[in-house]
Amino acid sequence: MKTISILLLTAVCFFISCSDDNESLLKNDLIKKTMAPAIAGEKIDFAYAIGTLSGKLATAQAEASIAGAAGTGFEWYSYYTASNEITVDGTRYPGGSEVPVKSVKETSTSGAVSTATLEDKIDEVYMNPSVPHGTRMVDLIAVTLRYSYIVPAEAKGQKVSFVFSAKSSTGESVSYKTPEYNVSKMDMKRLIPLTTANVCYFSIENMAAYTLAEVNSQNLSDKIDFIYIHQAKLDNFDYGHAFVSPGTDPKYIATPNVIPGNWTKNSTRMEKRADVRDAQLKGSIPNVYIDDIDFQTLQLDQAYDFVLNFAADEGAFMKTANGKYAAYVYINRLATGTVTVSIKRYPL
């Protein structure tokens, strides 16, 4: 009898605690859209969906555990997918593309907290795709908001999490807490042009390319990790687009005169990769990413200090001679005497 009473009591407690959630008329859900590693200066995009069965939506808020950099906050627009080609305010949207509709009246970001005050009404097409765009406005009772977090430099190597919340016009509130996301220690710089004619000296520490005059005038020779050379053949052997270190054996340097004798002769270990097409460096699919762990586990002890015959979409893992940085240098494009590279750099 005692056992039955305990079981009944447990069941009642269970129903009471569960019914609280089920009876809430304001619901929310969240998708983290960004799959790429969180690198300082890059975005983490979220889609925050809220809907109410009572009253209208009033406000939304996102609170980050580490305040985002400038640009963090909610967008003013939500989006629906055009079933056929349409033109809105002079802009043509092909079928299948996203069409913006204004869903937010006001946004603000102060410190770690971003808020959005929602519009009272929204274009009906957002709720009912069978209605043509611009037909009429209806109460805003469900919406998916877009929130972008710009990773701040001070978050490098830490974890960041978010609490999203919303309120309806009836005073109800709801929230969603994300798990913690790792913020990378990497730095990244895209689309740096190198030319054999002029700018061909590259510093991994500075993530920048220099001319000979710049290296000399700024006394940067100890920071030069590789030099870009392009020559079809060397001693009748294929040479092509090449990176050599200042300290590379001269027999592998097609134009030895590019390295003045009085420079620091850094020997930068490097190894070519043909199939590592990082989407952040490439700027498009596939969704393959170099992350911190790739640099943490990078072994270049057996590597040479030069790489020859680069093709577009190839790249090279490197370690600076002073052991301060590991890097991946990706070849975005190349032409005679010129390459455009992008770099991910990791402090060791």
Binding site: L234, D235, D238, Y252
Partner: peptide, 9 residues
């Protein structure tokens, strides 16, 4: 092997 091949690895 091609010119510049690192035969150690």
């Amino acid at each position: 092997a091609k010119f510049g091949t690192n035969l150690k690895h």
